[in-house]
Amino acid sequence: MKEKRITLFCGHYGSGKTNVAVNYALWLKKRHERVTVADLDIVNPYFRTKDSLPLFRAMEIGLIASPFANSNLDIPALPQEMYAVTDDRGLYAVLDVGGDDRGALALGRLTPAILEEGNYEMLAVVNRYRPLTQTVADTVEVLREVENAAGLRFTGVVNNSNLGGETTAGTVLASLGYAEEVSAALCVPLVMTTFVENLKEALTGRVPHPFTLQLQPKIQ
């Protein structure tokens, strides 16, 4: 995958968007000087990219996040700095978008500028082991709702299928067909198959477009 200036991670609640986005930003930082993560989650007050703030500081990755993220104030606020994502074209931006169509609504005001510049990738993060996206049809339904709310079409699929701590190589392998079918149904390519580091040996060469994840990324 040739990285674009703006990469958006969208999908169903709990599909792993935040973790994939954080890991992708680390990968991107190795290739580009100016990388910034924008937390546009207006749905979930927990498990935010802001949890990775010390990591981002150490790695000199920017973070645009609501001042209320991870606080007791549970309101869907967006930071004014988010306009830097489209205004500052010297930046490589990684957008962590909230779950489902409700979360994707937050993109609305950025969409015209993103389309006008035309240098973006919008990735559908999918996990076939999540209860409401176990079938291709259910997954595509959720993803179409996300597209309609965002006003943007997906350009690729990230297969992040996992069972948390019980994930084995078999868990990932059993999801490959599903991911291919989702990709075919959306008419966009599969761009990543993710797995945690300890499965690297078992899965290298066996999955398309492998991308290794750290669950709690370390400062490198």
Binding site: G14, T135, A174
Partner: peptide, 12 residues
């Protein structure tokens, strides 16, 4: 359908 699913406590 998978045997196990990855769920939030609330979803469970």
């Amino acid at each position: 359908m998978a045997d196990k699913v990855l769920m939030k406590g609330n979803e469970a």
